[in-house]
Structure formats: C-alpha cells, structure tokens
C-alpha cells in the first residue's frame, strides 16, 4: 500500500499542494485539511489541476475544516470524499505511511 499525503496550506498561498501532486505516486491518496481545503472547492482556478490529478490519486477533505470556513459539502468538487477526524484516523491506518506537505 502506498502513502497518505496531507496538505494543510491554501494553494493560493503556498506551493504545498503543487509539490504534493508532483511527487504523489499513482494509487496514493491526498487528504486536504486546515487551509488545504480551499483546493477542494468547485469553481476555483485549481479545480482543473485537482480534477486531472483525480485520475491517479484519491482525494479526501476534512469536513470540519470545510464547515468552519463557511462552506459545505455542496461546495466541494465531485470526486472528493469528505471525512471526519475518525475518517482521517482510518485513512492513516489504510495507507502505509503519512507524508505531511507543510
């Protein structure tokens, strides 16, 4: 099994997501948390980049961070699964290791 990559930075501010997508191997997963959730929203300039990456990577997004920032599941792009903290824990178990893109 492969890697769970976590990204906690807005793609509008830092290159963490960009680096993550450059180095994430096909079959691994990306979990967007904290300000990283802005990359999960539909209708942003990053939507196309994330959609392209979805063909090789599974995308998840922390629901409590989406809600805290005034968005809901209806704002999140199709194909990105929302998880709670228990789901976050389950992902770290499912994947062999966790790489944090800080």
């Amino acid at each position: 099994m492969s890697i769970l990559h976590t990204v906690n930075k807005s793609p509008f501010e830092k290159n963490s997501l960009e680096s993550c997508l450059r180095y994430a191997k096909s079959g691994s997963a990306v979990l967007l948390i904290e300000d990283g959730i802005y990359a999960a929203l539909a209708g942003t300039t990053f939507e196309q980049r994330v959609t392209t990456a979805m063909s090789e990577l599974d995308f998840y997004c922390l629901a409590s961070d989406v809600k805290a920032r005034g968005f809901s599941s209806s704002n999140v792009m199709d194909g990105i699964k929302l998880v709670d903290y228990a789901g976050f824990v389950d992902l770290t178990v499912e994947y062999e290791k966790v790489q944090a893109w800080l």
Partner: peptide, 11 residues
C-alpha cells in the same frame, strides 16, 4: 483532534 480521534478509535 487527531490524537483524541485515534484514541476513540481504539488505537
């Protein structure tokens, strides 16, 4: 939050 959830999950 993660630590609490991991403990609650029985880890």
């Amino acid at each position: 939050q993660f630590t609490r959830a991991a403990l609650a999950r029985g880890h």
